[in-house]
Deep mutational scan, measured.
Amino acid sequence: MQRVNMIMAESPGLITICLLGYLLSAECTVFLDHENANKILNRPKRYNSGKLEEFVQGNLERECMEEKCSFEEAREVFENTERTTEFWKQYVDGDQCESNPCLNGGSCKDDINSYECWCPFGFEGKNCELDVTCNIKNGRCEQFCKNSADNKVVCSCTEGYRLAENQKSCEPAVPFPCGRVSVSQTSKLTRAETVFPDVDYVNSTEAETILDNITQSTQSFNDFTRVVGGEDAKPGQFPWQVVLNGKVDAFCGGSIVNEKWIVTAAHCVETGVKITVVAGEHNIEETEHTEQKRNVIRIIPHHNYNAAINKYNHDIALLELDEPLVLNSYVTPICIADKEYTNIFLKFGSGYVSGWGRVFHKGRSALVLQYLRVPLVDRATCLRSTKFTIYNNMFCAGFHEGGRDSCQGDSGGPHVTEVEGTSFLTGIISWGEECAMKGKYGIYTKVSRYVNWIKEKTKLT
């Protein structure tokens, strides 16, 4: 034993070699072989497995989906700052455009905790909710729209109204504003409101030439003092309507412009014939205590009207009353817009006519005020429907199939267009061939041609 100890002390290297040989010859039971080890760690190889990531292109799944990435790591994937920024906006807080917040056709661009709407022409605001041009839906104005110097929408209202708090709607500024039905039992019968379409306001006024200088022999019209197929109006439903009495009662109609003036057809009036105007009328054979009678003290036909040349060209006249009318729910003026808007309103496509005229061709006159909704007829169809001249200051309205029309005794009465609950004068009943005849239409004086003249002559002093 002493000898062994001496050998170990003198030859430590020998001992180490012996131990190493023993270990190498022993069977290893701690580690699995290569094949079995792979069965336990069965993990798919990654895209760049075996390579240094710093030297390969980034992978979106590896960089940002398996674990949260930084902007720089995302930049490695896209290799483009702009594309990385677009991805980053949604990656950080989701897609803010998912709810489609942009209105009126706006395009949404996502941002971090926010979004941006790219608005089409005519709109602005956070969600493109603000109209900035009158060309689109009248700028959301209830009545009139004008573009300011910086191309912003400025709404306005006709006389007797003021802008509401929203700067879009119009509200009454006087007790009985024009064009409004205020009798409670008839307010439910107000005709369907007309909503502004998209309009090209630059070209809204037709490029028409008034044929002022045409000389033409007097034409022989049949029954051209021209509501057939209409309905009984309720008291106060058309408070701007008046009836004219002269040699015979209810020979023509008219509309209240203001307390002192009536507008009617020029062919209705004769110099030297006494005319009485009755406002607030409903049943011409009954006294309903809503009527107001006034005498006409002055007749002003349009300066281009000449019955000797043509009885229905420039067929418009103004009547001055001896005493002002007292405005109330049964006696209310009709609204008159400017030339541009009167023309736009007419193009809405349908209007209402009213009167006490004959209820059928050569038949009896109506006792109760009649009204009828009539569609506008395109000019080409209008011209083809008659052998008589249709001037540019006239328009056609009615039904091709016949059966409904204005008729004798309705002449001078109103053709009105309702705009968001307020009625505007767009025409004056003038003439036609018979009444409600198939293929024939009622012919009306186009008020847009005469609004400046009306307003100039009827100013209240």
Rank of each mutant, 00 (worst) to 15 (best):
I443W: 09
S411K: 15
T85Q: 15
T190N: 08
S365M: 11
A173P: 00
C69E: 00
K126L: 15
V326S: 12
W240H: 02
T389H: 14
I210D: 12
P375M: 11
L163K: 04
S220A: 11
I334N: 00
Y371H: 11
Y352L: 09
A337N: 00
S385R: 12
I429D: 08
Q216H: 12
V263E: 00
C157G: 00
P44H: 08
A26T: 14
I336P: 00
L319P: 00
D410I: 15
N59W: 01
K126T: 14
R384P: 08
N104A: 04
K51F: 06
L383F: 15
L189P: 12
A37F: 02
I17M: 12
K126V: 09
S329D: 15
F348Q: 09
M8P: 14
Q167V: 05
G427F: 00
N452H: 12
V331A: 07
M8I: 15
I214Q: 15
R191G: 14
F144K: 02
Q216G: 07
L346E: 04
V183R: 10
V257C: 02
L369Q: 07
F78V: 04
K68F: 04
S329N: 15
Y441V: 13
N393M: 03
D110P: 14
L32M: 13
E142C: 03
G21Q: 09
D232A: 13
G253N: 02
F55A: 12
C157V: 00
L425E: 01
S184A: 11
D110S: 13
C145S: 03
D33T: 11
A265D: 01
N283V: 10
F87Y: 07
S220M: 08
P333L: 00
A307D: 06
V296S: 03
P235R: 09
I210E: 15
C155D: 00
T215Q: 07
E270D: 12
E208Y: 15
L103W: 05
R191K: 11
F360Q: 09
T194I: 13
G363V: 07
D95I: 09
Y312F: 12
E320I: 01
V195D: 15
E72N: 08
H400N: 09
G409M: 14
S107W: 06
P172I: 05
G363P: 11
C134N: 03
T16G: 14
N59G: 03
M437G: 11
K247P: 13
V296W: 01
T133L: 07
S448N: 05
Q370W: 03
C396S: 02
Q167G: 07
E54A: 01
P235M: 08
C170S: 00
G253W: 10
A207Q: 12
C108Y: 03
I262W: 01
K137N: 14
V269E: 02
D315W: 01
P333D: 01
K446N: 13
E286L: 13
E67N: 02
E86K: 08
